[in-house]
């Protein structure tokens, strides 16, 4: 990949659910190694945008490239051809996704959750996957919880396992869909700390969040969405201290 090419390039993306248009023409670049925080009121389309990037949602128009690859389609002879499921799965491997409600596999222990991707998708030998999973659990501070089932872990611990599970696929991009919104307040910081560490390693991250302090301290770019469009964007410290749009001022007043 060439160095000046953004990790994520979103162009003119539109998406509707029935009569409701949730994305009304989104353009966005996420340079490699940067952390982009997407904020906005609920229903603004920020989660949908994230889900379009790894194609959990199909877009109605526009183009999304990840790592230089057009997501979901192959362009041949001036026409778009929808990718077959196997090719789409291959594209998704390089993109980690962390969900608001964790979605750990409840029938597998923490370490089995982290091993699942490498063993099933990449065909990694179990012993090697186990070693790698142990390292990742160590990294998120849960080495001593490796053999617990998700139901035996707190929300914050579950989310850290979920992050380790995504990292096990060695992604070049990590998507976080409100990763701390389902957590009890005292558990939020342990998850944000793991995400801070991850950002420090140079991981490219798109983070949908309501944590303005995290956006201010860790984010390279802040994107404020409202009603399906990007209203304001820029350096988080500047945008948050001197919002130019009334809608952002109102939003910031509401989230405190």
């Amino acid at each position: 990949m060439s160095g000046d090419q953004p990790m994520v390039r979103v162009r003119a993306v539109r998406k509707r659910f029935g009569a409701l248009e949730v994305l009304k023409g989104i353009d966005l670049d996420v340079p490699a190694g940067e952390v982009v925080c997407v904020v906005g009121p609920s229903g603004s389309g920020k989660s949908t945008l994230l889900r379009c990037v790894n194609r959990l949602e199909t877009i109605d128009s526009g183009r999304i490239w990840v790592n230089g690859e057009l997501m979901g389609y192959a362009e041949r002879g001036g026409r778009l051809h929808a990718l077959r499921p196997a090719e789409l799965s291959r594209q998704r491997r390089g993109i980690g996704m962390v969900f608001q409600r964790f979605h750990l596999f409840p029938h597998r222990t923490a370490i089995e959750n982290v091993m699942e991707g490498p063993v099933t998708v990449l065909g990694t030998a179990a012993a090697q996957a186990r070693r790698q999973a142990e390292e990742l659990l160590e990294r998120v501070g849960l080495a001593d919880r490796a053999h617990h089932y998700p139901a035996q872990l707190s929300g914050g611990q579950q989310q850290r396992v979920a992050i380790a599970r995504s990292l096990a696929m060695r992604p070049s991009l990590m998507l976080f869909d409100e990763p701390t919104s389902a957590l009890d307040p005292e558990l939020v910081q342990e998850v944000l700390a793991v995400m801070r560490d991850l950002a420090a390693t140079g991981m490219t991250m798109m983070v949908v969040t309501h944590e303005m302090n995290f956006a201010r301290e860790v984010g390279d770019q802040l994107v404020f969405m409202d009603d399906g469009v990007i209203v304001e964007r820029g350096d988080p410290r500047e945008v948050l201290s001197a919002p130019r749009h009334e809608r952002l001022r109102t939003f910031l007043g509401q989230v405190g």
């Binding site: 291959r90 409600r101 979605h103 596999f105 998708v121």
Partner: peptide, 17 residues
């Protein structure tokens, strides 16, 4: 939970997997 399917698909699993 449909989220289970999404989490598995995000790891790059095929429909059968």
């Amino acid at each position: 939970d449909p989220g289970q399917r999404e989490a598995a698909e995000s790891l790059g699993m095929s429909h059968r997997q």
